[in-house]
């Protein structure tokens, strides 16, 4: 079995460390296509593959059947034994050369056009709405795992991996960027799908700025940078189940988002602030964001023209 995988997929290059292990670019010797190989090592006990892995990978497989345009294709899954205690699950994804980070870096001055940003955002939110409607949250959304094909199609990658890896994660502390993390994660409160919306908001701003919005160096520093923009939230919105107290932060007032993202239009700024809402329950959902007037005005304009 182990051989079957390595024969079919011939590694070409290492493409990233990633939080969950090495990712390889490989060639599918059957089709000649390039693929991205992500291997997860899971502890196997006496009862075989852990339930969580079986369920999560099955969920990824099930979502694959819907063939969503804004989600990276999962082409194959293999399980191989490494030892009695460890099984390697290899997920074979389609390979897309470019991620949003390099796409933004490559864009010449003065950056992306407002129409292009709107298109990217719509695709990003479509993919996210699809994940969320399937009870999958990404948890680690950032420009590096948003892929942009040469045709400009957005594809979300690395979703759902967080859960498969979670037990592994606890064992190996890895440096994961804090810049796209929402306050509830930084405060170690409970969290759900709104985490991805916060990250999307940060990325939305970054598309205009071409540099990250909040570049904190630690959890507290990251929170401080966030409050410099959105202001210190009121006492009643501060989660009660956290150790970090609200009094650790200076009482800042929210500042106009245009100070940080000058090129954004009024509707865009409105939507951005709904995404960068401190209270996850009040944060806009992916589906509602797609309905926002920021996306609608373009359509109505073209309708009027025709």
């Amino acid at each position: 079995m182990a051989h079957a995988t390595s024969i079919q997929y011939e590694p070409v290059a290492e493409i990233g460390g990633g939080a969950y292990g090495t990712v390889y670019k490989a060639r599918d010797t059957e089709s000649g296509q390039f693929v991205a190989l992500k291997s997860v090592r899971v502890q196997t006990d006496q009862n075989g593959l852990p339930i969580s892995t079986v369920r999560e990978v099955a969920l990824l497989k099930r979502m694959e059947q819907f063939d969503h345009p804004n989600v990276v294709r999962l082409m194959d899954v293999c399980a191989t034994t490494r030892s009695d205690q460890e099984t390697k699950v290899t997920l074979v994804f389609e390979h897309v050369d470019q991620d949003l980070k390099t796409y933004l870096e490559k864009t010449p001055s003065p950056g992306l056009s407002p129409e292009r940003i709107k298109d990217l955002m719509r695709q990003l939110l479509c993919g996210l709405a699809f994940l969320h409607s399937n009870r999958v949250m990404h948890r680690d959304l950032k420009p590096e795992n948003i892929l942009v094909t040469s045709q400009g199609q957005v594809k979300l990658a690395d979703f759902g991996l967080a859960k498969i890896h979670s037990c592994h994660m606890a064992l190996t502390p890895v440096v994961v960027t804090l810049w796209y993390r929402p306050p509830e994660v930084l405060l170690q409160s409970s969290y759900a799908t709104p985490v991805d919306i916060w990250s999307t908001g940060c990325i939305f701003a970054e598309m205009f700025r071409r540099k990250p919005l909040f570049c904190g160096e630690s959890e507290v520093d990251q929170l401080g940078k966030i409050f410099e923009v959105i202001g210190l939230p009121p006492e009643e919105e501060w989660p009660t189940d956290v150790t970090l107290s609200r009094t650790n932060f200076p009482p800042l007032m929210p500042r106009p988002i245009a100070d940080f993202v000058p090129e954004i239009n009024e509707q865009g700024a409105q939507l951005l602030m709904k995404m960068l809402t401190f209270d996850p329950l009040k944060r806009i959902s992916a589906l509602n964001a797609l309905e926002h007037s920021y996306f609608q005005d373009e359509e109505t304009l073209t309708q009027k023209k025709s």
């Binding site: 593959l49 079986v54 099955a58 990824l60 497989k61 099930r62 059947q65 899954v77």
Partner: peptide, 9 residues
């Protein structure tokens, strides 16, 4: 699992 490609839906 490999034969079914983990598809248990």
């Amino acid at each position: 699992l490999c034969g079914l490609k983990f598809d248990l839906s």
